[in-house]
Design a protein around this nucleic acid. Sequence first.
DNA 1: CATTTGTAGTGCGTAAGATGCACAGTCACG
DNA 2: CGTGACTGTGCATCTTACGCACTACAAATG
Lengths: 247, 247
Amino acid sequence: MSQTLSRALKILRFVASEPRRIGEIATFLGVHHSTALRLLHTLRDQGFVFELPDHRYRIGATVIRVGFQALEAIDLRSVARPFMVTLNEATQETIHLGTLEGDEVTYIDKVEAKHGVRMYSRIGAVAPLHSSGIAKSILAFLPGDERSRLLDGRDLTARTRHSITSIDALEEELAVARERGYAVDAEENEPGIHCIGAPIFNGTGHVEGSVSISAPMSRIKRDLLIGFAPALLDATTAVSKQLGWEP
Amino acid sequence: MSQTLSRALKILRFVASEPRRIGEIATFLGVHHSTALRLLHTLRDQGFVFELPDHRYRIGATVIRVGFQALEAIDLRSVARPFMVTLNEATQETIHLGTLEGDEVTYIDKVEAKHGVRMYSRIGAVAPLHSSGIAKSILAFLPGDERSRLLDGRDLTARTRHSITSIDALEEELAVARERGYAVDAEENEPGIHCIGAPIFNGTGHVEGSVSISAPMSRIKRDLLIGFAPALLDATTAVSKQLGWEP
DNA sequence: CATTTGTAGTGCGTAAGATGCACAGTCACG
DNA sequence: CGTGACTGTGCATCTTACGCACTACAAATG
């Protein structure tokens, strides 16, 4: 492992949320300011950070570009996009696309609701495996051994008072999801927000990602949300077929 | 400058376009494969690259997340401001920044001309969609369906005797603007005032806003105004790149 | 099946490169 | 003007990143 590189990567994450000064970054890393300065200058010279006129540093254009480039290289995203837009128009709610990357489910696309209440989500962010509809719908359809490996020893944090916090209860919930063909997040991830998610399969029948419909309970009751399930399944089935899946 | 960090950043740019193997990356960097391996493992452990099952590496979720996080924190105004100031100094004319908000283009920043004649504009004011250079340069580069939706049924008020008042004529004008890369307002919005405007794009290639140069015809003839177009395009390209856009 | 090939991964010694220090330069403020 | 805060530079030193040699593994081949 490279200590120098680790430090630089920590800088990138630190300046992502807001521009930072050299001294602040040096303190954050626990290094001398001249060390922080050299790392920042290297990052700046390759466009990974941008130095503002007041000597604060923010994320640079290269990170943004590299991130977009990588997103565009994800085939699932371009295949799913039109179906997500259709689903968004049919429901007027926020549609997410997620994919399993390593041990985490990551949001890789989103079509926003037409209404004012915004979902707490961000492209690139990790969706909690045990409490979000988008992640549960992937988890439910993974091969059993892979799912067990992911869940083994995992701490199921209670994100809300509705969250599932035991492996046994989660496995039961996932079995129900498999029967239904989609997973439900009943305020398990975020208070006042519920969600349904369904899996996308590829040509080998392996789960490749999932699409979800999220809505505030204040606007969409559970019955109405569940009423969107056929449309959701139509969309995910259509995407799956594009990926070579056969029912 | 940090050589180790430089190498790692080059890796990120190299794997952005497509997943790569360790050997390929080592060759690209001109280092031993164990050096490339160590850098990749550090990048992987912080989520900056993701190792595929076949040992190829692609960009990881952390880059995407950091990029989007930063993009949300980036204020178009603050990114564009320095370039607008430069353009104002080069032209001595009024520079505007506009952005599409809902169905209207709004002025969100301005750098005033050095001369006495002031432009009729105010930050926060709506720029007429069909007659101002700043709005037309956004309209021209919107996706076709979005532009059609905006124009559908819209009453094209004649603000001056030069104003375009039919949808067909406007669509033709916008097609020309797309060919050129910038839009022209030839006294369509205000008598005696002309203007050129060019779009700003974000990392998805979507138009995010526009910058315009406005001047009184009494001071700047049309030829001279058009002569500023390369400088305008330089400015908008620079802003676009900051937002992750790639030509 | 055994062998070969290609590649990822490991541990070591050492020298190259990263580090902190001391100082200089710049800017803003009283 | 002096002072303090901060960015930036050059140097000696020491720590860490490097390439090497080897191992382990998977896939291809005969």
